[in-house]
Amino acid sequence: MRPLGFFDPAGFSKVGDKENFQNLRAAEIKHGRVAMMAALGAVPAGIGAVTTPPGTYGFAALLLLSGAMELAVWTQDPNKEAGDFGDPLGLGQYNEEFRNKELNNGRFAMFAALGIISADLLTGKAIYCRQVPLGASRSVPAVSPMLS
Rank of each mutant, 00 (worst) to 15 (best):
L121N: 04
A49C: 00
A136H: 00
V143G: 04
A61G: 13
L121V: 11
D77Q: 02
F59Y: 10
N20L: 11
A27S: 11
D87S: 02
G11D: 03
L147Q: 05
S148C: 07
L64P: 00
V15H: 07
Y94K: 09
M1Q: 14
Q76W: 00
D84A: 05
L89A: 11
R33K: 07
F21M: 08
G48K: 01
P3M: 02
N95V: 14
V43W: 06
A10G: 13
R99A: 15
K80V: 03
E28W: 09
V140M: 04
M146Y: 09
M110D: 07
F7K: 11
V50F: 13
F21A: 13
V50T: 09
S137E: 02
P54V: 01
A109Y: 07
A109L: 08
N20H: 10
P145A: 12
M37Q: 02
R2N: 10
W74P: 00
T51P: 05
V43M: 10
G124R: 02
P145S: 15
P133T: 00
Y57R: 11
A68S: 08
K30H: 09
G106W: 06
Q93L: 12
S66D: 01
G46S: 05
A39C: 04
A38M: 15
I127H: 00
N104K: 15
S66A: 06
P54F: 02
F12T: 03
M1F: 11
N104S: 11
V140P: 01
A10T: 14
F12Q: 04
T123N: 03
G55W: 06
A61T: 15
N20G: 07
A112T: 11
M110E: 08
L62Q: 07
V50N: 05
G32K: 05
G58S: 03
R2G: 11
I29W: 00
R130N: 13
N79V: 04
G41T: 03
L71Q: 14
K80S: 12
D120H: 12
G115H: 09
G11K: 04
A68I: 08
L114K: 14
P9Q: 03
Q93K: 14
T75W: 02
S148M: 13
Q22E: 14
G124S: 10
G11P: 00
E97M: 15
G55P: 09
H31A: 15
A35Q: 10
K125H: 02
I127P: 01
I116F: 12
E19D: 11
G90M: 01
P53R: 01
E19P: 05
V50Q: 07
M69L: 14
Q131A: 01
P44Q: 04
A49G: 04
L71R: 05
F21W: 12
M1K: 10
P145K: 15
Y94E: 11
L4F: 10
F6T: 10
P44N: 08
D77L: 00
N100V: 05
A61R: 10
R107K: 07
V50G: 09
F7Q: 09
R138T: 06
L40E: 15
G55N: 06
G32I: 05
E96G: 03
G83F: 06
G5F: 04
G135N: 00
F6W: 13
E81M: 15
